[in-house]
Amino acid sequence: MKKLSDCPNGFLGTIAEVVGDFDRVHRLMDFGFNVGVPFELLGQAPLGGPLLVHLNGVVIAIRKREAECILINPRLP
């Protein structure tokens, strides 16, 4: 399945699964990365920084490493 970290800018999708170690998964869920939630990948912060994800009305900056834990489905038009 496709990872959030592999998505191009402007990608619309929904979260399919959050995988990884306990701490990471829980922290991601605390921030609203729950299964079924739609998101939009807005882009990347300057200097190769974190990814900017729009999720449930808020923009969240997330490192590539954490974005690799998030498996996604493309959103149907």
Partner: peptide
């Protein structure tokens, strides 16, 4: 608390 570094930041 986690020894692992996780950066997640809400942009208000």
């Amino acid at each position: 608390f986690s020894a692992e570094n996780i950066f997640l930041m809400e942009l208000p």
